[in-house]
Amino acid sequence: MEKRQYNIIAETGIHARPATLLVQTASKFNSDITLEYQEKSVNLKSIMGVMSLGVGQSAAVTITADGDDEKEAIDAISETMKAEGLTE
């Protein structure tokens, strides 16, 4: 199981566009991937789930991947977060 924590720096939090891209990235992998924020956890392959968390600026989130490609999954997701300006 791979687990990583992030601090969201984007002023608008994880809004529609980066959320869509995160979901698309996560969906490429076999692993079960979850996004956790304020003790709520959702499937990162679910756009509705991700948006319903309403992650805002300065939020601390945790992403967990569990499966045969968990490491690659977390790396790819970290990259998308950075490219979208969500994290530093």
Binding site: T20, N43, K45, I47, M48, G49
Partner: peptide
């Protein structure tokens, strides 16, 4: 975005 919503497993 609409396609992504329709593909939402949850």
């Amino acid at each position: 975005a609409h396609v992504t919503i329709l593909s939402d497993p949850e």
